[in-house]
Design a protein around this nucleic acid. Structure first.
Lengths: 338, 338
DNA sequence: AAATTCTCCGCAAACGTTTGAAACAAGCCT
DNA sequence: AGGCTTGTTTCAAACGTTTGCGGAGAATTT
């Protein structure tokens, strides 16, 4: 009464039957007479009865809740992953608890603790950039809670995972530049201690090799944000280096490069074509619009969640799975001479 | 054992004491001898005991979880609100369940149901654009669950709320244009059935009146996205309407306007100055950078959560509160002749 | 008429934890 | 010795729900 919540007991008391009868009536158990069922359901409806999910969790040792650990929700990619997760989870009757690590290892550790204490039935993790030690993740498995990595995985860690084929996507992005006739394509690369940084660079190199363009790393620049891109472009211009295309590790970098080039009067895409990678929201608002790789965050969320639910609902153990999602190249104005 | 979780009973059994003793020992109850306490804590540590949050919730009729209903997480503003909420909530030992309404009324209704079933201790709501009927929100209060509105409120609904002073912010944004010498300032307005649409337009009109510029609504255009902004600008140019400033209802609109003007060779900010509103992520990557209003999403999240926690933790009832946050105008290149 | 089956329902235990009250032992005061 | 207090521990009930088992009564079979 206190909290204003109607319980099975309230209904039982009102109808002068036992709680067990009410429970069974509500779930259409064959042992209960039609008469009783009708009365119970009617009253439940009238009193607006809502089963207490907490009590249920305790009873059946299953919280019907899954936990997400995510680096930073403010990124378009990650928030679309969340949307995918939520949709599948709610569809299956699961709640979702979201924890942000904010790219900090100890925060991530605390998140794991929180989620385990909440008795989540499974956890989806994208590890923070800072995470070096994985004992907290091992603790998850030790507690027999299913764990799925999405996007940012831990190489060698035995768990299900769903990732983007960064290498292939980078390769196709670069090939697109090659196919449109570019020969001197630069790469603005991300940090090489991160897998995505490596993979995207390797994809770039592979595409060039395949095309018989032997540049090695002579046109690879270390630039993974707006400002660094600006500086890299200035360096290119000042050194008189000849380029006719740029494949950037992310959209912000691509946009920084594009603007700096434009300011110097260089025409995009005619003189230099540009391809970005994945940050989603920006590609439509630049001028010209930015060719980029669509990382399919939403799809990644749905796939990862389905893998998790499968683990949760299956009784027996089965080997770890890895799903590789293919990213699409979305060709827009920055690489297409119209 | 099954789930790999250590319970108080396991510890009790191992130490041949009762569960109650263990429970009290863990919370340093004075009734328990130092000897026992030490033994219990030691074993708990060793076995990696984690209190079962679900059992706790059931026992103390408090889940230590708060629910958030949010229109769409992918917007920068909303995701920063979430960050603010999370930080304060976790600080206070509360979990957070996030539900997206995706701007759909019936989805929002389902969210309320989910959250109530999860026995959340309080709910933070930003209503969807579609919501016309508020019975589901009333149900929250009927169940004596505290409810706080943030950003998108329901006028006349008796609940705590925290909002931005849109009127004032719009007024200051417009005044900034006036102060920099602009006389013919257009407003690209949002839908007038939404409060923010109205308020921002009124703020615009107020600033002009204050400055003795009597334009009425002659320069108000209905445009609240990238494409509509493009069309509105074309209309202005074709009709030969003279403008030297634009205050747009959001950043995307501002950017659409800016690009279209630039394509026609009009210099920003020299010929037309532009001010946007709030979408956060875009303002730094345009050329010139975009003057805009910072909505302080993170702060809104923290403030709203503190209000909620106060409600949850206080025993007695007190009148509803409304907190109005002031938004900052961030002056950048699009309105400032350097 | 007795034995069996069927229909419907309640009892009690369980999930993990907390907590008021009771129990027990030991030590102290009359 | 009986009555106190003091210190430590256990008992039992409770939170809301589910579920195996048993039981009462009626209907059916033998």
């Amino acid at each position: 009464m206190k909290k204003g919540f109607v319980t099975i007991k309230d209904i039982a008391w009102e109808l002068k039957v036992s709680p067990s009868t009410v429970s069974r009536a509500l779930k259409d158990h064959p042992d209960i007479s039609g008469e009783t069922k009708r009365a119970v359901n009617e009253l439940a409806e009238k009193l607006n009865y809502q089963p207490n999910a907490v009590a249920l969790s305790l009873k059946q040792q299953r919280s019907n809740t899954i936990g997400i650990i995510i680096p930073e929700i403010v990124h378009y990619f990650f928030s679309s992953v969340i949307s995918g997760i939520e949709d599948v989870a709610y569809e299956a009757g699961f709640n979702v608890i979201i924890c942000q690590s904010n790219e900090m290892a100890n925060r991530e550790k605390a998140n794991v603790k929180t989620l385990l204490a909440s008795q989540v039935d499974g956890i989806l993790v994208s590890v923070s950039k800072e995470t070096k030690d994985f004992s907290h993740l091992e603790k998850i498995l030790k507690n027999k809670v299913p764990l799925i990595f999405y996007d940012r995985i831990v190489p060698g860690f035995l768990a299900d995972q769903v990732i983007i084929d960064d290498f292939d996507a980078a390769c196709r992005a670069t090939r697109h530049l090659v196919d449109s006739g570019r020969k001197r394509i630069a790469h603005f690369a991300g940090p090489q201690n991160l897998l995505i940084g490596q993979q995207r660079k390797e994809g770039y190199k592979k595409a060039l090799e395949d095309a018989g363009i032997h540049l090695g790393e002579t046109l690879v620049y270390n630039a993974d944000n707006f400002e660094k891109a600006r500086l890299a472009v200035l360096k290119i211009l000042e050194s008189g280096t000849d380029i006719d295309g740029i494949f950037a590790v992310n959209d912000l970098t691509a946009i920084g490069a594009m603007q700096t080039l434009q300011k110097r009067g260089i025409k995009i895409p005619n003189e230099v074509a540009i391809v970005g990678f994945s940050d989603g929201r920006f590609s439509g608002i630049t001028d010209p619009t930015l060719t980029s790789v669509d990382q399919h965050g939403y799809e990644m969320g749905t796939v990862a969640t389905r893998m998790l639910l499968k683990r949760i609902l299956s009784k027996e153990d089965y080997p770890c799975e890895t799903k590789v999602l293919h990213a699409n190249l979305i060709v827009r104005g920055s690489s297409q001479v119209s």
